[in-house]
Every structure is written in C-alpha cells, then in structure tokens.
C-alpha cells in the first residue's frame, strides 16, 4: 500500500481540436486536502470528469488506491470509492430530496430485483441527517428539487457525498451558489473530512476558502498544471500570478 490515494500520469483530454487537458501529472496522499484553482475554462472540471469515469481520457494513466483504473462509468469510480459533487450537480428535478440523495443506490425493504420495494422512511431519515450537516434550510424535503433555490440544490448534492463512505471526495465548486451561512457549514463538512483523514480535491475560485481549508494548491492554466504549491510556501498574490500566467512553476517551465 502506497501513501498515494490518487495519482495521474500524463492525463490528457482532447475534445476534437480543443485541448482541454494536457499531460496532467497529479498526486494526492492519503488524508491530504488539495485545491485545484484556475481561470474559467482552465480544464478543472475536465480533469474531474476524467478521474470519475464520466468521460474517457484521450491519454494518460489513473492510479487510484494503488491500482491502475480505466473507469467505464461514474458508477465504477464510485464503487471504487470516489464520491463526487459535480459542477452540474446531476440532480433529477422531478424527484424529492431523499430520492435524489439515494438516486442509484436506494435503500431497499424487500429485494425483488428491479422491482425491489423502497424503504422510503429510512431514506427520508438518512436524508435529514445528511442535510443537517450541511446546515441548509429546506422547508419541505418531500418537495421536488425543481422548486428549490440554487443553494438548496447544491446542499442536496453535497449531502449526497457526505451520506456515503468513500476513499476520496471531489467537490467541483461546491459553494458557488451558497449564502454566507451555508458556505460556512459546507466548509465545516470539509474540516470534518480532514479530521476523519478522508482525502479531498476541492475546486474553488475562493482564495480565502482555499487558504482556510487545504494543504496544497494546484493551479491549472489552459489545460496544463502550472503550479503545485504547499500552502505554507505561498500567498494569495503568488497564486493569482500563476493563475493569470504572470508566473510559472520552475518544474513546469517547459510546459506552459
């Protein structure tokens, strides 16, 4: 067993002529929290989609928990232990909150294959508990997601990862639509993960949040990793300089 939970080597994704991600060498040790920063379109979400099985990379390797994986679907990545809050949230608008939380892994009362009877009460109670951790306010969780605010939807998506055991949590801009209080709550969830020793990849544009929460900052620029900075050795201005391209990390000089 290595102390790396995730490693990518030369991970690359081209959408036709768009080189959204090029040669990403990324690693994450057990228990470590890393932020990925970068301008819009830098390739952050693309990177997430490659390591979570949503898309197939054009090239490169993904080593998760000591094993090389080629995830064929998000389910496989999830079964391997990667829980993700996607930027697009991936919620079913016409379903209520518990149904969304347990979508694809419903609690079952009687197993009858596809016609298994749902354990609605257990799902509702577990949903309540998971949502309480996010501190979100939802007047009626039996309402459909369609009628909920952006922040409420985001909290539902976050609660979905918090409700299940995992080896790695990935959150793509989890607090983008949240109010001050809800943001604080989500940051608390992240701190709880840290204390529990669960590794995390956090994508965020919020400098304060990143410096508060993570151990290390990886900067993406135009589809390439341009900096890998320990929090102690860097500053806000420094990170901004990497994001805008004013500076490039020494070991990445050739790349950018």
């Amino acid at each position: 067993m290595t102390d790396l939970i995730l490693e990518t080597r030369g991970l690359t994704k081209h959408y036709g002529g768009v080189h959204a991600l090029t040669g990403a060498d990324f690693s994450l040790t057990r228990g470590e929290h890393v932020a990925i920063m970068g301008d819009n379109g830098a390739g952050k979400s693309t990177f997430v989609r490659q390591i979570t099985g949503v898309e197939k990379p054009t090239g490169g390797q993904i080593i998760f928990d000591g094993v090389e994986h080629t995830f064929q679907s998000p389910i496989e990545a999830r079964e391997a232990g990667i829980e993700t809050v996607f930027q697009t949230l991936a919620l079913a608008d016409d379903l209520d909150v518990p149904s969304n939380l347990f979508l694809g892994r419903e609690k079952i009362r009687f197993n009858l294959g596809p016609f298994s009877i749902l354990d609605k009460r257990a799902m509702k109670e577990a949903a309540m508990a998971a949502l309480l951790k996010t501190g979100v306010k939802i007047p009626n969780i039996m309402n459909t997601i369609r009628n909920m605010s952006g922040g409420q939807r985001q909290c539902v998506a976050i609660a979905r990862t918090a409700a299940f055991k995992s080896k790695l949590v990935i959150m793509d801009e989890p607090t983008a639509a949240l109010g001050v209080q809800e943001t604080a709550q989500v940051e608390n969830i992240i701190r709880t993960l840290k204390e529990a020793g669960e590794p995390l990849i956090l994508i965020s544009h919020n400098m304060r949040q990143v410096f508060d929460l993570v151990d290390r900052i990886v900067v993406f620029r135009r589809g390439r990793i341009v900096a890998n900075l320990r929090k102690e050795d860097t500053s806000g201005e420094d990170v901004v300089a990497y994001i805008t391209g004013a500076k490039t990390g020494t070991e990445y000089q050739g790349a950018a």
Partner: peptide, 19 residues
C-alpha cells in the same frame, strides 16, 4: 419500487440518472 423511482429519474434528467 426502485423501478418506478428510476422511471421518474430518467425522464427527469437522463444524464444525471446515468451519473
């Protein structure tokens, strides 16, 4: 049942259901 729930989920947001 799960079957019913998945019917609604797929009709509601097929990519999300897949994910």
């Amino acid at each position: 049942t799960k079957y019913g729930k998945h019917c609604y989920a797929i009709g509601s947001n097929e990519p999300a259901a897949r994910m």
